[in-house]
């Protein structure tokens, strides 16, 4: 069988030798941190205008990571391109001729790209948190407060897992364009819309992004009646990721390249 460390090294070389990797990950970080910082600064200057109820449920941790809503899209692009590039360039045939053990091939690729996405996710989450808290001034919280560390580290996990989810989707669809065409509107429009209407929220709460984002909340949002906690939410996201990666593996083994 193929040497796993050799395949991992090869996949790392593939990732670091294309420009799209650096750009998408950098954009994920910058967009998340910038948008979170902007919202934190805005919140600080308008805090006195909030209603009593909003003041009580104010979640300084969640708002300092709210930029993830936008930043995750860059993470999705990263995940899609890592896998989709193989198909759009035709490289997949060369790659599979070099590593015909297809499970080893795809798992190595996802492992390398996934670890990178998780690391960048964590850096993004912590940068976003610290800059946000600094801008919130008197309303800030600290990592030592209850559940805050869980929320910040969880936010990093969320970013990474969304990237891995995108890798699974792109591998199943074998096309970057098609994958982005489905994932972008789903995460940017469909999911938030469904989640804001109470009738559809029961279903929308189980979508990967809605479930996964619960981990970033420290103060429970009383306006929505979500039936699970932060860790259960992350578990739902992990479930989605596992489902799509297994689906991708089964299809890759069966299909002609």
């Amino acid at each position: 069988m193929a040497s796993v460390p050799a395949v991992l090294t090869s996949e790392w070389t593939k990732i670091r030798t294309v420009a799209s990797t650096i750009w998408t990950l950098l954009i994920a970080l910058v967009v998340t941190v910038a948008m979170s910082a902007g919202l934190c600064a805005l919140m600080k200057s308008n805090f006195s205008d909030l209603s009593e109820k909003d003041k009580l449920t104010f979640d300084p941790t969640a708002i300092s990571m709210s930029g993830m809503v936008l930043g995750q899209l860059a993470m999705i692009v990263f995940g899609v391109l890592v896998v989709g590039n193989e198909y759009s360039s035709g490289m997949i045939r060369t790659s599979l001729a070099a590593v015909p053990q297809r499970t080893t091939f795809l798992l190595s690729k996802i492992a390398v790209a996934g670890v990178l996405a998780l690391v960048v996710g964590q850096i993004t989450a912590f940068c976003s948190f610290f800059l946000g808290q600094a801008l919130l001034g008197d309303h800030r919280t600290t990592l030592g407060s209850e559940n805050v560390l869980r929320a910040v580290a969880g936010g990093g996990l969320y970013m990474g897992l969304i990237g891995i989810f995108a890798m699974g989707v792109a591998s199943i669809l074998r096309s970057s364009m098609l994958s982005l065409g489905i994932l972008m509107p789903l995460f940017f429009l469909v999911s938030p819309i469904l989640n804001s209407v109470s009738q559809t929220q029961k279903i929308a709460q189980y979508l990967p992004d809605q479930a996964g984002q619960k981990i970033t909340q420290v103060v429970t949002d009383t306006s929505s009646d979500v039936s699970y906690g932060p860790w259960a939410g992350l578990a739902i996201l992990v479930g989605w990721v596992v489902l799509f990666v297994i689906g991708a593996l089964i299809l890759l083994r069966k299909r002609d390249a």
């Binding site: 193929a2 050799a6 996949e11 030798t17 294309v18 360039s89 490289m91 070099a98």
Partner: peptide
Amino acid sequence: KAMHGGRSAYNNLLCLAQSN
């Protein structure tokens, strides 16, 4: 054309060499 166009010729071959 079964190579990634955004990668240099050297790097395209390098990742293949490493995998084996």
